[in-house]
Amino acid sequence: MTDQQTYQITRRTAAEYDPEVRARLERDAKEIIARYPKPRSALLPMLHLVQSVDGHITQAGIDFCAEMLDITSAQVTGVATFYTQYKKAPVGEYHVGVCINTLCAVMGGDQIWEELSAHVGVGHDEATEDGKVSLERIECNAACDFAPVMTVNWEFFDNMTPEKAKELVDDLRAGKQVLPSRGPGRLCTWKEASRVLAGFPDGLAHEGVQAGPESLRGLELARERGWTAPSADADHEQSHEPVQAGEVSDPPPNEPGKPIGGDVKPGSQEGRNQ
C-alpha cells in the first residue's frame, strides 16, 4: 500500500452507468446499506459490488458509491486505493494468485511465479491481451500447510508445482473446466466472485470438500491413537486460578506521550510477553 504505485483510475467522460445497470446497482447497494447501523460501513462491500459489474474500480463505480453514501468521490478513492483487492485496472476473467510470502516462496512459490509469469508473458497485476487471465503475487493466504499455494478468483489451489501452475493457466485460457482443491464444483469468474464478496451468496456453499487432507492430519492421528479431549464429567486434577490482569503483559496499553508498546527497551524483546 505504501508501494510506489500510482493508482490511475480510468476517468470516463460520463461517469455514469446505463439506466438498467444503475437500477440494479442501486437496489443491491440499498440492500448492503441496510445491513449496517451506519451507511458508510457499506463502502467496502459496495466497492466489491461495483467491481462485480466493471471488473475493476472505475470512476463510474467511485461516483456511484459516493452518491449512494453521500460522501465525496475523493473519500471513496482514498479507500479504494488502500486495499489490494480493489483493482486499478482490468484484471482477467480468471485472476490467478501465486503466494510469494516466505513459506510458500521457499517451498517453491518463487519458482512457480518465475516460470508461470514467463509462460504467460505477464507480470504482477497484469492481464493477458485476451483478457482471460491475470497474475498477482499474493501475500500469505492462510493455507500454509498446503504450500505452495495458488488462488484463482480467491479459490484455493493447494500443493502446486510449476507444471501444475502452467497447466492450470493453459486450461483457463482454453476454456477448460478447472476445479479448486477446496472449493465448489465450478470455478466462477472474477466478476461473479466479487459479487459474493459484496455479500450476495451464489448458492455454491454446500459444494466441495469440508476440509483438505492436511487440515485433518491431527484429527486422524488422534482417532488412530484413541486420543480425545477429556470428558466433561471427569475428575479434574488441576484446579487453576484464572490468570489475573497484572500477570499479563501483552499487549501493553498505548499511552499518549509514551512509546507505544509500553516501557519496552528499544531494540530488545524485553518487556514483552514475559
Partner: peptide, 11 residues
C-alpha cells in the same frame, strides 16, 4: 476477502 469459499460457508 481472499478466501471465497470460506466466505460462502460463513454466509
Amino acid at each position: 476477502g481472499e478466501v471465497l469459499h470460506v466466505i460462502r460457508r460463513l454466509q
